[in-house]
C-alpha cells in the first residue's frame, strides 16, 4: 500500500514538475512549448561528452553532486533562455497555433542536434549511483531515489511558491500571467518577466533530467517526449495557465497511472496509458476549463 503511494508520488512529481515548466511559459506568453521535452533531453546529454559510441563517456557527470546539480539546472535555464532570445521573441504577436508549431520545430532542431553529436542509440549512464540503494520506511522497502525525488519536488514546489508570492519578481510574473498588457502598462518589463519564466522553466527541465536520468539510468534523445506528453495533458487538465492546477493535475496523473497499473487485469496492463488518456478526455468533458480555471484566460467579447 505504502509502496503504491510512494510510486504514485514519485511518478506524479515528474509530471508535476514538467507541467509546471510548461504552465509557467504559457502563463506569460500563451505559448504551448513543445520544445520543453527536448530541453530535458539536452540536460541529460549535457552530462556526457559528445561521441557517437554506444558507451557513454562521462563528462560533467563525474562532478560531485553539489556541483552537478547546479550545473544541470544552469544548462536547462541557459538553453531555455537562449531559445527565447533567438526564436520566441520574434513570435510574441503570432497566433497560438503558429507559436506551437514553431516550438515543435525548435524541439526538433534540438533533438536532431543531439542526434548529430551523440547518435540515436540510448546510452547507459550511472548518475548518482548511491541513490539507487533501498531504504526501509514503515516496513516498505523503497529506493532512496524515490524518497529523494519526492522530497526534492516538495522543496522545489515550496521554493517556487515562496518565490512567486514573496519576491517582487514573482509578483510581476503573476501579474503578467493574469493580464499581460495591463501588467506592462503598470511598469512590468515584458522581456525580463518572459526571460525569467523561461529560465525557471528551463531549470525545472534540468531538475526533471536529473531525476529521470538517475531513475532510468539511460540517456536517450527521445526521453523527453513521454514525460512531455503527460506534462501537457496535466497542464490542460489543471487549467491552462494555472500553476497550482498544473501541479495538482500532474500528481493526479501520476496517481492514476500507478493505480491503474495495480488495479487493471494483467491482460489490460499494457494498455494502461490508453486508459489514462481516456480518463483525461473524460475529465476535459466535465471540466473543459480545467480543474482550477486560471483567471485571465477566458476570452472577452
Amino acid at each position: 500500500m505504502l509502496q503504491i503511494l510512494f510510486d504514485a508520488l514519485s511518478l506524479g512529481s515528474l509530471y508535476a514538475l514538467g507541467a509546471l515548466g510548461i504552465a509557467l511559459i504559457f502563463g506569460v506568453m500563451r505559448l504551448v512549448n513543445f520544445a520543453h521535452g527536448d530541453v530535458i533531453a539536452f540536460c541529460v546529454f549535457a552530462l556526457l561528452w559528445p561521441s557517437t559510441d554506444a558507451m557513454a563517456i562521462v563528462f560533467a557527470g563525474q562532478l560531485p553532486w553539489y556541483l552537478l546539480v547546479p550545473f544541470v539546472l544552469l544548462c536547462g535555464a541557459g538553453l531555455s533562455v537562449l531559445c527565447e532570445i533567438v526564436v520566441f521573441r520574434r513570435f510574441r504577436k503570432a497566433n497560438p497555433a503558429t507559436m506551437m508549431i514553431t516550438s515543435f520545430a525548435l524541439g526538433f532542431v534540438i533533438r536532431y542536434f543531439l542526434l548529430m553529436l551523440y547518435s540515436s542509440r540510448p546510452k547507459s549512464i550511472s548518475l548518482l549511483p548511491t541513490l539507487s540503494q533501498p531504504v526501509e520506511i514503515f516496513g516498505a522497502r523503497l529506493p532512496l531515489l524515490q524518497l529523494i525525488t519526492i522530497i526534492a519536488t516538495m522543496a522545489i514546489l515550496i521554493g517556487l511558491t515562496l518565490f512567486l508570492r514573496q519576491t517582487r519578481f514573482g509578483l510581476e510574473m503573476r501579474a503578467a500571467a493574469e493580464n499581460f498588457s495591463m501588467a506592462r502598462m503598470l511598469g512590468v518589463r515584458a522581456n525580463r518577466v518572459i526571460m525569467g519564466a523561461f529560465a525557471l522553466s528551463g531549470a525545472l527541465a534540468g531538475a526533471i533530467a536529473l531525476i529521470f536520468g538517475s531513475q532510468t539510468g539511460t540517456a536517450d534523445i527521445q526521453m523527453g517526449a513521454s514525460i512531455m506528453l503527460m506534462a501537457f495533458i496535466a497542464t490542460v487538465i489543471g487549467g491552462l495557465g494555472s500553476l497550482g492546477g498544473a501541479v495538482l493535475a500532474g500528481f493526479l496523473l501520476g496517481a492514476a497511472s500507478v493505480v491503474m497499473q495495480v488495479m487493471l487485469p494483467v491482460d489490460a496492463r499494457p494498455f494502461r496509458d490508453a486508459f489514462v488518456y481516456g480518463a483525461v478526455i473524460l475529465v476535459l468533458l466535465f471540466r473543459p476549463q480545467g480543474l482550477i480555471a486560471a483567471r485571465g484566460t477566458k476570452e472577452r467579447v
Binding site: 504551448v32 497560438p96 506551437m100 506528453l229 501537457f232 495533458i233 497542464t235 490542460v236 491552462l240 499494457p270 494498455f271 494502461r272 496509458d273 490508453a274 488518456y277 481516456g278 483525461v280 478526455i281 476535459l284 473543459p288 476549463q289 480545467g290
Partner: peptide, 17 residues
C-alpha cells in the same frame, strides 16, 4: 487548446493500443 491537447491524447491512445 483543450481540444488540441485532447486530440493529442487520442493519438497517444491509438498508438498505445
Amino acid at each position: 487548446i483543450a481540444a488540441s491537447i485532447a486530440t493529442f491524447a487520442v493519438l497517444a491512445m491509438i498508438n498505445t493500443i
